[in-house]
Each structure stands twice: as structure tokens, then as C-alpha cells.
Nucleic acid binder design. Structure first.
Lengths: 346, 346
DNA sequence: TTGTACGCGTTATCAC
DNA sequence: GTGATAACGCGTACAA
């Protein structure tokens, strides 16, 4: 039951180890006769490739590393799904690490990846600074995180905020309200707030922002939302309220509070979320939202990473290593929470 | 900028390569003096470990493979999250493959994993038969799939079906209804139906099953659900309906249809889902459901896999390789859709 | 087109 | 305790 190696194939077929290696890496350089004999030997002996030996010899692991915060949030799970599909297309395997917002682990994982000679890394986790990431000297692309010193792909959050808020204005909002869940200024998602503010400025409408850290637990979100809901009810009674919430989960919470009180979404409420996550469709009244093109994000990220990895493999890599920041457009999804007048589904 | 190796450390510190190896693998066998000098050399030269060379030499990759259908379904994403946490605790890295229900890929991925000398595999994908999996001759544990020839961890689906349906009876259901989304008989989840049927039999209540393949798209689920809803409305008017749905997503769809019609959940509807996925909390009326202990599933799976992997590393592995099937208990989560009389949230 | 010989960086087996 | 040296399995100049 010992492992079959090139040596065994060589003996069996009558060629040398080098020729067997060529059979796999440069078959065109062999005669048809040789190929046939070698193939026969391979099948007879049931040879299984050994990538580890191969990596040691030529350095190409065909593995990339993925550093992701977690998979609880649907956005991350969806992104990972698509990254795996794309990396597969390029012939790369992925070692996945989940940092769970622990910066020590994040650093350790990154080093661990290097020990396995991964050819590149995609970083979605956001604890380590991009400066530190850049210093690791390995092909690397970051997604939706601080990216001053790294190549990156991001959603056009600013445009998303703009689209969402403009839509509220178009639908006749008299007050603009934004509620977000602890967004930090460094985060690309903060662009959503900037987009919102831009429209507020242009429209000259009355406005109000609620910034709160709602935490992770759903019950916590709900309990922290109630006072906000009450404040809005009090303060803007009778006015047509256009409310932009920073993600669909909290948008759904807000929607539920309204529907629980009124049994419907009253005319004077316009609601829009962000992400186009499943909950936006599954809500009691389908939520208008901003769609993030996660497929495009994943594709661009892998394309960019692959470029860097190929460059690295060349004899004389350009010391160029320019930093690229790519932006992926968002789209407005109009469902039923911004219709002004909510019409019953048939 | 060449790679620093044991040879360099050896030269720098004045010891041999063998001693450097011992420094890492059996430090107790060195004098304190040697350790100190070697550590100094390591830091000075900024040595980085090379796991690839290590794997080639000793065969221990510290990598496991994970084969998962996808990450769209929250259940799988959640399971992967917890598997990653557990494998990390045991010191294993994970290469993740997503089979997307493609049996050819599933087989290819499995072989690819072997090429990298992974020490074990966790299979959640369900296309390849357990017989074929078993024939790969590698430590392997399957989760929530057909498992005749493999060691496995499964939720107690039967108990879950029992708990759910009994709860409906306890709450005064006069008709028992089960709706499921294309469950196959081989799938462990089919146990949910068996549990339901058992209670139907014992209770001697009137009952009805709807088996349909609702597909993946949410809109499709909704459209296919409407006729079912109408049929139930017609047929069981006035009777107290206890409805057990095979997962929370379709339970939420059903709930939404009811609430859209009645603005509330009428007294004569009792609803319970399965999975305790986020949507069950986020629904307009929090859904009663059956909780699957995914953490326990992941932990048991890794524990079992680790046992097998350790056995494999020994000099004389027992040819034993007994197949173990472990069952993880489910729990009843009572929320607001089985209260009989739905009381408004305060 | 094919073969020889060495390198990749570590671990394992003997010696001392 | 420590050192020499042969694996581990494959890639690759260089030679033929």
C-alpha cells in the first residue's frame, strides 16, 4: 500500500523520472508512443499526484487564503460563496480563515497562510490595518474594508446612499431620516451616510440621523429600536417620513414595529434598506433596498488577485505593484416599502 | 531576499540542521544555552516556517478538507462557521470546496484534497454516495446526509418532527398539516416527516401532507404556496389548524400569506417551522420552531474526525475503523405562532 | 526527444 | 545533547 511515485511509473514504463514529469507538465515534448506507454503505467499503478512535493519543488501551491470576519452575516457568506466559485475557475483552492474580529488571530492566520506558501490572499476581515497587510509582501486584495495601502474592491456605497435617499425624495418624503448601526468612518460602508447627507443638503428637507450600535443579537436590535421608533412617531407625526436604514436587517426590524402597530405600512412611511439580502424579500412587506453586486465584486477581486499572482510567478516581476481601487456599482431595488401608498398584494 | 532555512539558522547559531529541527519539534531535548542561541539566530534572520517542506517530510499537513453544498442556505453557512472554529481549536486549517450539487465536481474536489495530503475530510455535500466516500480510505465524517458507509453526525430529525407536531396537538390543533419542500427519503431530514406521521397516528386527528418542490427562488416559493394556502383555507375553515413546515423559510412565507390576509395570525392557525434560522426570529410574528444544535454537531464532527486522524498517525493503526453514527438532540422553541391566541407584543 | 543529477526545506535514523 | 546523512516526491538545468 505504499505511495506510487514517478520512480515507479518510470520503472514500469521504461522511461526516466524526468520524462514522467514532462508527461504532466509539458506533454507536447513527448512522442505519442511515450505518452501512451506512460499513461498505461499510470493507470496500472493507480498513480495519485502529490501536490505537496510539487509545491516544494516549484513553489506554486495553487492555494489562496481567504480571511473573512464570519459567516453569520449573509453578506459575508454570499461573498465567500462567490469567491470560491471564482477561485475555482482560476484553478485555485482556498484555505478559509474566520477572524471573528480578533486581531491577534487575524495576524496569526495571515502568517499561517504564508507558511503554506499560498500564492495570494483575499482579505475581508477588517481588524489589521491595510498598511500592515501591505507589508506582508504577498499578492493581496481587500474587499469592503479600509484599503489605503492595498489593492481593493468596494461597492459604491456613496452612490448607494445617494440612490436610496433620492428615491425617498422622489416618492415625496417630507422628512429624511437615516438610521445606521455603528458604522465607523474608516469603513467603506460609511459612504452610505455620506450619500445620504449629500441628498439631504441638496433637497434642503428637514432631516435626522440616528447612529447607534445595535449589537449582534436580534433581540437587542429590537429593544434598542423601540425608543427610536417612538421618537420618530412623536416628532414627525403627520409628516411623510423617508427613512433610509443602513442594512436590511434593521430595516426589517423597523418595518415590523410599524406593521405591528398599524397592521400595515401607513402612507406617511417610506422605508428603504441596504444590501438586498434575503430578508428584504422575505419581510412581511417586501423591502425596497440597494442591491450590491456581490458576484461582480468577487469576480473583480479574483481577476485582480490573479493578475498579481501571475506577475509574481514571472522570472523578473516588475517591482511595480501599483495599488488599484475598484468600485462596483449598486442598484436601486424598488419593492413595496417606498410606494407611498402601500397597495395590497393581489 | 532568499528564503531563510534551517541551514542558515544552523550556520548562524553554530548548530546543525538536525538540532534546529529539534528546537521546533522537541525543544526539551536541547540545553537552555542551545535554545537561546538558536532563538537569537531565528530572530536575527527572520526565519519563517515552511510547512510544505514539513509535510513532504513527515506527511502531517494539518489541513482538513470541507465539502459543502453551498453557503446560500443559512444552515450551511452557520455549520461552516462552527466547523472552522472547531478545526482551529484542534490546530487544523481547512480547504473549503463548494460542490453546488454537481457530482462530478464533488468527486474531483475530493481527489484534489487527497493530492494535498489533507489528513481528513468533512462531507456535507450529498451527491456522492457514502459507499464511494468510504472507498477513498481517508479519515472522513459526514454531516446531515446519507451515511450508510461513513461515520456521521446528524440532528435528531425524527425527534424534531415529534416535538413540533406534539406541540401542535398540545396547543389544541384539530387538524394536523405538514408542508415540506421536496425532502427525499434518503435524506436524514426525512425523519422530520416520520416524526410528524408518528404523532398523527397516535393522535388520530385528521391530517394532510403537502409535498412540493418549491425550488430555490423566493418568488417561486411564494407563488407555489398560494394555492396550498387557499386549499387549506377552504378545506379546514373553522377548524384549528396545526401546521408543521419543514423549514423556517417556507414557514415564514406561509405566515406572511396569512398576515397579509388577516392582518394578524387568527386563533385557528398554529404554525411551527424547523431550523431556528434567523428568519424565524425576524418574522413579523416570531415563529415557533425546532432548534438544531449546530455547535454540537460541529464539535462532535471534529472530535470524531480528530480521533480518526490521530489513529491514522500511529505506527500501527488499528484496522478497526468502526463506523459511528451520532445523533444530536433538537429542542422545541416556542415563540408566538403557536400560542393559539396571538397576543400583541407590548 | 530523453536522461542525469541536483535542488526544494524539512524530518527521521543512526551514530557519537 | 548533538551531528551526519538519507529520505520525502517532484521540477529543472544541462547534457546527450
Amino acid at each position: 500500500m505504499k505511495k506510487v511515485t514517478f520512480k515507479d511509473i518510470a520503472n514500469e514504463s521504461g522511461y526516466s523520472k524526468a520524462t514522467i514529469s514532462r508527461y504532466f507538465n509539458d506533454p507536447d515534448s513527448l512522442t505519442d508512443d511515450a505518452k501512451e506507454k506512460i499513461l498505461k503505467a499510470i493507470n496500472k499503478l493507480r498513480y495519485k499526484e502529490n501536490k505537496i512535493a510539487r509545491v516544494l519543488a516549484n513553489g506554486k501551491s495553487e492555494i489562496i487564503g481567504v480571511l473573512i470576519p464570519d459567516l453569520y452575516m449573509h453578506y459575508y457568506a454570499d461573498l465567500l460563496t462567490k469567491l470560491l466559485v471564482c477561485s475555482d475557475k482560476y484553478g485555485y483552492k482556498a484555505i478559509v480563515f474566520q477572524s471573528l474580529d480578533d486581531s491577534i488571530k487575524e495576524k496569526d492566520y495571515l502568517e499561517e497562510l504564508l507558511k503554506y506558501h499560498v500564492e495570494g490572499v483575499i482579505v475581508i476581515s477588517h481588524v489589521i490595518s491595510s498598511k500592515e497587510l501591505a507589508s506582508m509582501n504577498i499578492p493581496l486584495v481587500t474587499i469592503e474594508r479600509e484599503d489605503q495601502y492595498t489593492s481593493s474592491i468596494n461597492s459604491n456605497n456613496y452612490e448607494g446612499g445617494l440612490l436610496a435617499t433620492k428615491h425617498l425624495v422622489d416618492q415625496g418624503a417630507e422628512v429624511l431620516i437615516h438610521i445606521n448601526s455603528g458604522l465607523k468612518k474608516e469603513s467603506p460602508a460609511y459612504g452610505r451616510i455620506k450619500g445620504y447627507r449629500q441628498v439631504v443638503k441638496e433637497s434642503k428637507l428637514e432631516s435626522k440621523e440616528f447612529n447607534a450600535n445595535f449589537g449582534d443579537r436580534y433581540e437587542e436590535i429590537v429593544s434598542k429600536f423601540k425608543p427610536i421608533f417612538n421618537e420618530i412617531e412623536d416628532k414627525y407625526k403627520g409628516k411623510k417620513k423617508g427613512i433610509f436604514l443602513s442594512n436590511d436587517t434593521i430595516a426589517n426590524v423597523f418595518l415590523n414595529l410599524i406593521v405591528q402597530k398599524y397592521n400595515t405600512l401607513p402612507d406617511d412611511y417610506l422605508l428603504i434598506g441596504f444590501d438586498d439580502s434575503p430578508i428584504s424579500k422575505e419581510a412581511i412587506i417586501p423591502l425596497s433596498t440597494i442591491h450590491q453586486d456581490i458576484t461582480a465584486i468577487a469576480e473583480k477581486a479574483m481577476y485582480l488577485l490573479n493578475e498579481k499572482m501571475q506577475e509574481r510567478k514571472k522570472r523578473h516581476p516588475k517591482k511595480d505593484e501599483t495599488i488599484k481601487h475598484e468600485i462596483v456599482d449598486t442598484t436601486l431595488i424598488i419593492r413595496d416599502t417606498t410606494r407611498g401608498k402601500y397597495e395590497e398584494l393581489d
